[in-house]
Nucleic acid binder design. Structure first.
Length: 614
RNA sequence: GGUCCCGUAGCUCAGCUGGAUAGAGCAACUGACUUCUAAUCAGUAGGUCACAGGUUCGAAUCCUGUCGGGAUCACCA
């Protein structure tokens, strides 16, 4: 990039010389020249013609001649219509490669002296992590890596929803039908075991509900409403009311929640036990995914937070009290509704909790920037939350962002964990590694390593396929995930990029001791592949900054793919080691080496590891 | 109904602040491994960028409207 900036300044100086007009170098549009034309970079002259009062081609000609005689970088040019194609001096390319190669942390932004918190995952403790969580976790982790590379200090957090009616359902079912089963005595992973009972509860509840629907009470209720004509439609919609008003199981679950809130010792004991099963299970899954958290927050400890801030806000007229004692924020002046922040009985809500958690995190880490990775169904919630925090005048209020992403659906429709209709994260991870293995065995590759090493490689390949598949698309898009078909190992995929890296590693192994990574500085014979690779390499820092400012891992994914693609092409077109000229050989190896390093760094930003061979 | 997101090749997706003939991958068909790893490369075919207007020298990109898909609008989380 620095060379491009230099070029822009040279151009603006040339324009000044020719027209006496000052032009902001940043306003110039320069892009790499399309391969159909001769040149390396292209300046768009259309926006400049008004300063000259001449035709685009004449303007291009004038600027081109000026650059050719005075610029350090440009040594030739041609104009086509309003496009000024500039060719760079041979030395430019070796210099640029040398710059990149000699910068160990190439790509990293300057330290920004600002802490950013990324919250992601945030699971419930009543069931295992599934495909939906995977998208959330991968996005969150990648964004945190990107922020880090862009120069922020990053804190990763999750808020574990370990309380409420859902976990009580699992607890109740375990008590009723569990017969003392544990992860240890059943050899079932803890989060799955608890999830089994969540499903069990719902199955039993549905049975109970189905029976009840035939009773006189139920039929009377159905007849007395006039919204639904169809009985099934009505009862589908009435489920929640049934749970709260008539269900025996519902009543038991609510009683359990009440006991929990009153800290009944036996209930607390069971709750702690089952939560631990789940959390231990989650940790394993996180480890498999390669993610970790600076700190985990638990709702059981934070759900009362925020009330104090609400009281403070009441004094400052951010909120007002209704007649029944409930507390509200009136956001109608910014086109939002009124929002309740404290119930009439004084208890807090989801939003109250979020206000409190944000404050707690600020106290813990002094994070002035907060990113919440949460599904797009909560967009309105976060809009409201951010507005309220702004009105409360918190120090972190100005830099809060909801990274919202679309739902992951199966070909059969939405996932429903209550019905057990999900793709579990663990299963998916295993399947991916299996597929990588099958694929490799069919091809008969990876021979010179032992079983353990091989399994590790398959795991890396499988995870790369999965992670890349999810991260390469814009988060806002909904995605339909077909477990059988979605994740390829060929083409625009994680393994494709790993393969480019592995090819370089293989070359380096084969040629060890026969090259000098610094022995090419006078080499001036770059071909078009090499120029294109160097250009792409030099865009890495810019891509990171852009990905950070847009919270967009897909930009990195596309960048890395582009670089790998160019390298594969280069590799098949030119034999890296097939030259006797020492400086050419050094140059090609150094270039390959730098590409490999950049691929590795880029993939790391996606949370993807590189194997040394595959 | 209000607000927000999405709509680009049969399928999955790129397309940066408007710029040259809209690009990849998968699937289909052709070719290339005695030569640095073929999880690769080269090629053929596949497009009314949902639709209609507008702004501009120039629009997939910006604006308005329409259509289609989704989300959301709780004293649930």
């Amino acid at each position: 990039m620095s060379a491009l900036n230099k070029l822009k300044i040279e151009i603006s100086e040339a324009i000044k010389k020719l027209t006496q007009q000052k032009i902001d170098p940043e306003s110039l549009t320069i892009s790499s020249t399309r391969k159909e034309f001769i040149g390396d970079y292209t300046l768009l002259v259309f926006p400049l013609i008004r300063h000259f009062g001449k035709k685009p081609e004449e303007v291009g000609q004038l600027i081109g001649e000026e650059l050719k005689s005075n610029s350090e970088i440009v040594n030739d040019f041609n104009t086509i219509k309003g496009f000024l194609n500039l060719s760079f001096s041979p030395q430019y390319w070796t210099n640029t490669l040398q710059d990149i190669q000699s910068t160990p942390d190439f790509g990293r932004g300057k330290a920004k002296d600002k802490k950013v918190m990324v919250e992601f995952s945030s699971p419930n403790t009543n069931k295992p992590l599934h495909l939906g969580h995977i998208r959330n976790i991968l996005l969150g982790w990648s964004v945190s890596k990107i922020m880090d590379a862009a120069g922020y200090e990053v804190i990763t957090t999750q808020v574990v929803n370990d309380r409420g009616i859902a976990i009580c359902k699992s607890m109740l079912a375990w008590k009723k039908w569990g017969d003392g089963i544990t992860p240890e005595n059943s050899n079932r992973k803890g989060d799955f075991l608890v999830g089994d009972f969540y499903v069990k509860f719902n199955t039993e509840f549905n049975n109970e509900y189905a029976k009840w629907q035939k009773t006189k009470t139920a039929q009377t209720i159905f007849i007395n409403q006039n919204k639904y004509e169809n009985e099934n439609d009505f009862f589908a919609d009435y489920k929640n009311d049934y749970f709260n008003d008539y269900s025996k199981l519902g009543k038991e679950a609510r009683e359990m929640l009440l006991k929990w809130e009153n800290k009944d010792p036996k209930t607390m004991e069971l709750w702690k036990k089952m939560n631990n099963w789940v959390l231990t299970g989650f940790d394993e899954t996180y480890k498999e995914l390669g993610v970790s958290f600076t700190k985990s927050y638990f709702e059981s400890k934070t759900y009362i937070l925020g009330r104090k801030i609400v009281e403070e806000g009441l004094k400052n007229n951010v909120f007002y009290t209704e007649k029944d004692g409930s507390v509200w924020a009136d956001l109608t002046d910014v086109n939002m509704d009124k929002k309740i922040v404290l119930r009439s009985d004084g208890t807090s809500l989801y939003i109250t909790q979020d206000i409190g958690t944000a404050e707690l995190r600020y106290k813990d880490f002094k994070t002035e920037k907060m990113i919440y990775v949460v599904g797009d169904e909560q967009e309105y919630h976060f809009k409201v939350l951010f507005e309220i925090i702004k009105r409360l005048n918190r120090p972190y209020a100005d830099d809060m962002y909801h990274l919202s992403y679309g739902m992951v659906e199966l070909p059969t429709g939405k996932m429903k964990s209550r019905e057990g209709k999900v793709v579990d994260a663990d299963d998916l991870i295993k399947e991916m590694a299996m597929e990588a293995k099958t694929n490799a065995e069919e091809k008969g590759i990876i021979d010179d390593s032992n079983d353990e090493e091989r399994d590790e490689i398959y795991r890396k390949i499988g995870m790369a396929a999965l992670k890349f598949f999810i991260l390469k698309v814009n988060p806002k898009r909904r995605m339909i995930f077909n477990p059988e078909e979605s994740v390829d190992l060929q083409g625009q995929t994680g393994p494709y990029i790993q393969n480019a890296y592995v090819r370089v590693k293989s070359i380096l192994r084969k040629s060890e001791g026969t090259y000098d990574l610094n022995g090419y500085f006078n080499y001036i014979d770059c071909n078009s592949h090499e120029k294109s690779l160097i250009t792409t390499l030099s865009e890495f820092p810019y891509t990171i900054q852009q990905a950070a400012s847009e919270y967009e891992p897909s930009l990195i994914a596309n960048y890395v793919y582009d670089l790998a693609k160019k390298y594969h092409k280069y590799y098949s077109d030119i034999r890296i080691l097939g030259t006797d000229k020492q400086d050419a050989r050094n140059f090609r190896i150094a270039l390959s080496h730098t590409v490999a390093q950049t691929l590795k760094k880029g993939m790391d930003l996606l949370g993807i590891q590189m194997p040394e061979r595959m």
